[in-house]
Design a protein around this nucleic acid. Structure first.
Lengths: 248, 248
DNA sequence: CGGTTCCCTTGATCCGTGTCAAAGTACGGA
DNA sequence: TCCGTACTTTGACACGGATCAAGGGAACCG
């Protein structure tokens, strides 16, 4: 339950956390940080491992330290749609909610910095800047969800793939300087996870990636490593009118 | 700019507002209410009228008093996707954002209670419970957006229509007692707006509605009025595993 | 009253993506 | 090394929804 990954065990408080818990630490006073310390613990999940099922009681909210996790929804007959992609520094869990509404799964090996939910909610009520920060993050996610809705509702398979690659390239590059030259990215997702993200089948994902490769829009180095010779052509394929937005 | 619809002109403060501005008034002290009074004004838009274009400067955030408005995104070639449906008591606009990211349009004649953005943001920073309330609302919208993503990515045309009808029935009925018997709803949306919502063409929307009618799942009284003999069969058609969620 | 406009319905056909099937590839364990 | 498993690629075909096209009905207005 309270496993400490070796490289995290030495961290004394949130301010030393590699991602600084975007959500909660940015402007915390020392006494607030120490209150965070009391209610936090780390957990690590292997790739493919479920973190939480919809309907489960939520004991914690969490900040992703490393790895990739996904929020998904599944229909009775098995149709599945990813509705959230959690990358390092993203926040998971809804304060005030007892019962999980979505499945949460580790896509790659994932480490979470968890905060016990009840005391975290109390902190939220008594520390204005935390709820303000959380509001900002929720609104960012909402923007991302809305871009995603355009993708799901109106884009072609080819545009969906190009959009996803652009999104990952944008998030993966430390700074936002992905516009010009060539970029290399590691795909943290299997073809199946990509299909869940994009509302496609994995066969269609595979076919479209092959097509983009054949036409020189991307180059594959192994199944999971992608080189993008020219970011602009990829963006053009994505069909975004602006320069891509911040789709998560 | 500061038009006062006759039936609203007599309202002295937010606490008399028909919807009580879910976002901001629930727990306001008298002096906070008076600060809200100073920065608010009403605006009314005719059906079809644009409220704001993506890229416009946002002078206000607003609460929907009456009518229906929509957030939409449009691609260069004209493909359009609705990404938000604003019903009375919903909040529009993002505090902290200068430039609108989505188009906002009045679907029916709509009255907004607007708050000048800058002073509203100041209020937000100095009044913790307002940002807490806004956080709750943002998280509700995020949940709705995620249900919507499942709809867009994985549901069939028929399921999409049934889901939309269920959503509107749920929101339209004052209390949530829509589960059992027959329900009548006014469709505030044209076929085209429905198609924008659902990621379909208007022809497909029309065909599926006709099909549901022929099979007795719904009955039409005019184009815009729908009677649902049995809410449960409709929900079954919608393909939701639970009892429908709160999809906005 | 007829004409115009807007919205809706229905039909015929086409195409993109899903479905089903089979083979290829990488990786870890015995 | 060989096998088993998980993931990916590719092919053939089917089908749902898009597209193109025509026409109906109601509201509004001269």
């Amino acid at each position: 339950m309270t496993e400490l990954p070796p490289d995290l065990a030495r961290m004394k408080d949130c301010s030393q956390c590699p991602i600084r818990h975007r959500a909660v630490c940015a402007r915390c006073e020392p006494d607030e940080l120490s209150r965070l310390e009391e209610i936090k613990y780390y957990r690590t999940f292997e790739a493919g491992q479920p973190i939480l099922w919809a309907g489960d009681r939520m004991e914690f909210v969490a900040s992703v330290v490393s790895g990739v996790a996904a929020l998904t929804q599944t229909m009775e007959d098995g149709r599945r749609q990813m509705v959230g992609l959690l990358l390092p520094s993203d926040f998971a869990g809804r304060p005030g909610r007892e019962i999980a509404k979505f499945d949460v799964t580790a896509v790659t090996k994932t480490t979470l910095c968890c905060f016990r939910r009840k005391p975290f909610e109390h902190l939220l009520e008594t520390t204005p800047h935390v709820s303000q920060r959380l509001l900002e993050m929720a609104l960012d996610e909402l923007d991302a969800a809305r871009e995603w809705m355009l993708l799901l509702g109106r884009k072609t398979a080819r545009e969906k793939i190009a959009s996803l690659l652009a999104i990952i390239a944008r998030r993966a590059s430390i700074n936002g300087d992905t516009r010009g030259g060539n970029v290399e990215i590691d795909l943290p997702l299997t073809r199946e996870a990509m299909s869940d993200y994009l509302g496609l089948t994995l066969e269609t994902v595979s076919r479209q990636i092959s097509a983009l490769k054949k036409e020189g829009v991307i180059e594959l180095q192994g199944k999971r490593r992608v080189m993008i010779p020219d970011m602009r052509t990829l963006m053009a394929e994505a069909g975004d009118d602006e320069d891509g937005g911040a789709l998560l």
